[in-house]
């Protein structure tokens, strides 16, 4: 939830807004999961690492910026770590092993699926 240092009359209204957006976020969770799975599937068939990292970074960025504000701190933090790691892979000139990042993405997808239950 939003940190709240001011007891304004509109806080109830904010809570309702957060709840509405939170529901919308959960409704769109499946699309976000499919986004990552499509990126992983394409990587398996093309082996294009740069493309994979760009897509993972973008998908994770979308979650990292929004999830914590809606009360999904763990999801947001993991997405943030993934975004940073994917960006680091993109900038790296050496062919670093992508397995640790892909494991982290798997964990993120598990966490997202659990929220759907």
């Amino acid at each position: 939830m939003l940190a709240d240092g001011h007891g304004t009359r509109q806080d109830g209204s904010i809570d309702r807004t957060v709840e509405t957006i939170r529901r919308k976020f959960l409704t769109q969770m499946e699309d976000r999961i499919l986004f990552f799975e499509a990126a992983l599937q394409d990587y398996r068939s093309t082996g294009n690492r740069d493309e994979l990292m760009a897509r993972i970074s973008f998908g994770a960025h979308k979650i990292a910026g929004l999830a914590p504000s809606l009360g999904f701190q763990s999801l947001g933090q993991r997405a943030n770590r993934i975004e940073l790691a994917a960006e680091s892979y993109r900038k790296s000139e050496t062919a670093d092993d992508v397995a640790p990042l892909l494991n982290e993405v798997d964990t993120l997808l598990d966490e997202m699926e659990q929220l759907l239950d």
Partner: peptide, 17 residues
């Protein structure tokens, strides 16, 4: 570019005037 974030941010700003 994340519309849900825009809505959340705008609502928070509105709550502080």
């Amino acid at each position: 570019d994340e519309q849900m974030f825009v809505e959340l941010f705008a609502r928070t700003l509105a709550s502080i005037g």
